[in-house]
Design a protein around this nucleic acid. Structure first.
Lengths: 204, 204
DNA sequence: CACAATACGGACCGACGGTCCACATCGGCA
DNA sequence: TGCCGATGTGGACCGTCGGTCCGTATTGTG
């Protein structure tokens, strides 16, 4: 091989492992799938998985990565309102929608990561990017309470919080979406109205 | 023995196990302490622990229980403003202080529980009491957005969130307290002021 | 004191994440 | 094409964990 790049069989196995892991995680739930399960499904020895990915946490991250990268491209270089160039308020709302969808769709992987590394949601380098971008878009529309709003919104966007509200409490995802948008503009509205009935059925 | 009550040696062991567990959890961190460690420290066989408490989760709950019970007595039968009989706004703020202190002081145990049972913070029967009481006190001062405020405040009071803000981000606990109180009265204030600078240094 | 009920403790179990290394495969080069 | 060092492989193996089991010891009641 020309350089220190990956050997052909190694690349094939990496792809097989990622595909098997994604499939099993999705089908059985991340915590239910052991490294042996993945190895068997990928037609590979367990040692190969650890050689390629290091440990279980890194494998989960590797499954999540491409989805995150695709999304990031939309944010950095896609068309407005999500990408650069649009009006600030639209950019903020498009971004909130994107984050909500992403977290919801990948809640299983995200929760598994949070479960394995203490403050993954806030501390992980990948997450930092999303929080920073959220803060930037909030700053463009609400110079006042940016920091606190960022904190509140990011907490409301946690995978476990969403999962609880929607899966356990039976809240409609669209209600959550509406609540987020309402919260995001709360600094410009009067008292009483902005936070009203985000979810009448929530915590009783 | 007169009734189906506990034998003397059993009671002695139960106390020894609880004491050893509390000490080790506090000293080394919950996740670092194995059931064998606790058995050794308590001078007891591992089987005895499982016979008494069922499993690891139940043991952690048993360590947390007395602290929770003591607190609950204050809320239900203690003197105002925390106990019944005081003015509604004072009762709310006293209650927020109590919850914050409790969660902060017992964050290690609470986080360990949340780590072991999926939605412990919201779903666990003991927690439900605290959330219900919070909702009641909020309803007395803010008939409007009770549900949503309860949800926001309860999220802001999560052990992992507090732990992150204070331990990782270096935020002063008193800032968090001020933020909670400010949030709790936000429905009665105008825009801009209520959420202002709860923490200028939070999420950047 | 006798003896049934209760409790004890540590050997044992299965499963897990992770390591190790004898062996197989790859691919640049002559 | 065939050689051979670099790279990759797989599954036996390891230490640890939560949890179980059961022969033995303790308790307290009639």
């Amino acid at each position: 091989m020309v350089t220190g790049s990956e050997r052909a069989d190694a690349a094939r196995n990496r792809a097989a492992i990622l595909a098997a892991a994604a499939e099993l995680f999705d089908r059985d739930g991340v915590e239910q799938v052991s490294m042996n399960d993945i190895a068997r499904a990928a037609g590979v020895g367990k040692g190969t998985i650890f050689r390629r990915f290091g440990d279980r946490t890194a494998l989960i991250e590797a499954v999540l990565l491409p989805r995150s990268v695709a999304m990031r491209r939309l944010v950095d270089h896609g068309p407005p309102p999500l990408g650069p160039g649009g009006e600030a308020a639209d950019a903020l709302h498009a971004y909130l929608d994107l984050l909500l969808d992403f977290v919801w769709e990948n809640r299983a992987l995200i929760r598994a990561l949070e479960h394995r590394v203490p403050h993954a949601y806030y501390a992980h380098s990948s997450s930092r990017y999303w929080l920073t971008e959220l803060a930037r878009r909030l700053a463009a529309t609400h110079p006042q309470d940016t920091d606190y709003l960022t904190y509140i919104l990011s907490t409301a966007l946690r995978a476990d919080v969403l999962d609880y509200l929607i899966s356990v409490r039976g809240m409609d995802p669209e209600q959550v979406r509406a609540g987020l948008h309402r919260l995001a503009v709360s600094a410009t509205r009067g008292p009483g109205t902005p936070l009203a009935d985000v979810d009448r059925r929530s915590v009783s």
